[in-house]
Design a protein around this nucleic acid. Structure first.
Lengths: 121, 121
DNA sequence: ATAAGTGTATTAAGCTACTTAATACACTTA
DNA sequence: TAAGTGTATTAAGTAGCTTAATACACTTAT
């Protein structure tokens, strides 16, 4: 179940993208599985269908989702995820690590965080 | 010298905060050093003084800067940086690392990124 | 004392992005 | 045929960012 946080300053479609991305990446939704339809999810969240459509459209351009007009939207292959997305994440990780180091954080502490990020299969 | 990128979708005051934060953290500006005055920097960047003031105000609330009315704004002590800022950075690092791992990135690759983030004294 | 420079604050206006609303079209499926 | 799908467009309202024009209290140099 997806819920929105209206105190979050980010636009709704960004929150949606992040939640869906996480569900897909965590395996909560399997490859090829059908996502809720634009109108259904809009009704469920009480927001406008255009906003859902935008989130789906952008997730599609990043490779997390593919849509077929008349049929629906579906979870894509993780192999198909845009390389640009990965570069973006590496840059984010490097930036956060750099500032933490400059603030005096120990290298080992950061490595522990990396190990904490390991998916438990 | 600070330059602004008007293609960047982030607000100007956010770009400013990031640039100043980096200069402070990298040691390009020493603790206690005077920052350009609100009006001077505004004139230099051809933007409104209010926008500079907002960046300074928020950096002050995070502990990177302190301001004295009538005197100016100055680089704060890195020990004084808000703990909330560090927690934010740790969360960012963890989120990026988690998604990268789920996208198939190797743990060693991420650890290499951490080591890359080590400041070279 | 005076003048110039400082941070800080307020109000009004314009602009852009986000969001909603109301449709419409072409496609697929039961 | 009817219902459900993604997709697209236009118009309107809202909120945040930015600018502009001031103003005030303080500090520093003259």
């Amino acid at each position: 179940m997806i819920t929105l946080n209206y105190r979050d300053p980010r636009p709704i479609y960004e929150q949606l993208k992040e939640k869906l991305r996480r569900m897909i990446l965590s395996g909560a939704m399997a490859e090829g599985e059908k996502l809720p339809s634009v109108r259904e999810l809009a009704s469920q969240l009480t927001i406008n269908p255009n906003t859902i459509a935008r989130a789906y459209r952008e997730l599609e351009s990043e490779g997390f989702v593919y849509s077929i007009s008349g049929r629906g939207s579906f979870v894509g292959s993780l192999n198909g995820v845009d390389e640009g997305r990965k570069q973006q994440l590496r840059a984010q990780l490097l930036a956060a690590a750099t500032e933490l180091r400059q603030l005096g954080e120990d290298e080992q502490t950061l490595i522990s965080l990396i190990k904490e990020a390991t998916p438990h299969d």
